[in-house]
Amino acid sequence: MKKTILRASLAAFAIAGYAGIATAEPVDEKLTIDGEREMTVKTKAPEGHPFDEVLSGWLFRTKETRALEADSFANPGMLRVEEGEALWNKVEGTAGKSCSTCHGDAAESMKGVGAAYPKWDKDNNRPINIELQVNKCRTEQMGAEAYPFDKGGQKPLTAYVKHQSIGMPVAADLTAGEMQKWWDKGKEVYYTRTGQLNLSCASCHEQNAGKYIRADHLSQGQVNGFPTYRLKQADLVSLHNRFRGCIRDTRAEYPKAFSDELMALEVYVTWRGTGLSVETPGVRQ
């Protein structure tokens, strides 16, 4: 009996997989977390954007995955956010300080921060993201070592800081310093075809958003949920890791995390999602 049901559902699965065409559009649904916090998953695109509407990657995921993000108890990324909270209060380094020594209650001091990054960093004359800002505080204020890429507390602490802006619209300030120049450079990276497969970000996320590429439903490649919880990896995934993965899939060599190329890409792609809610930690397949 059980076997028959399993077989029947496998067959249904096979048909759905084969006839992806019927279900390819993003869903037309609202994301309300825990039944109370309304998120903007669809909004009018900013001036000069190639799309009329920007859409969160959440709209392209399955019903099950969407449900996980809509319930903060079910969202597996929230456990990592809690780890981030512990790190926020943990004294590290020669100065005997924690993040909270200087910033106090993150719910107040970090509210809006995640929505406004990447920012212009005058000291280093380049854009800075949350990961690099955390490292700057660690080395310059705490006498602690910088976290290596994706290691130590980098992912949970970044997720914790960004989570304080959940629901707020993404709005990076491109007028500060030379942000516009970095936006230009990021745009160039976005449209440059790489690798043996000769594809750019736009080949997949602009020309083919909404379509299936084998088993993957292509979204607009928005960054508002990062670090996201990826079910496939059963872990938080950082933005630069995702960028590198997508570039690697074109069969290209990929740039270092936080390199000029990827920082420029972060500035540009963040702008492409202007107005979407910060979803950190988003849940993805």
Binding site: R193, G195, Q196, L199, S200, C204, A252, E253
Partner: peptide, 19 residues
């Protein structure tokens, strides 16, 4: 077109070294 050229050396930037 986004279709790759399967027997072409006109590829994108920075192809993987072994390719």
């Amino acid at each position: 077109t986004v279709m790759p050229g399967f027997y072409s050396l006109e590829v994108g930037k920075n192809p993987r070294k072994d390719l």
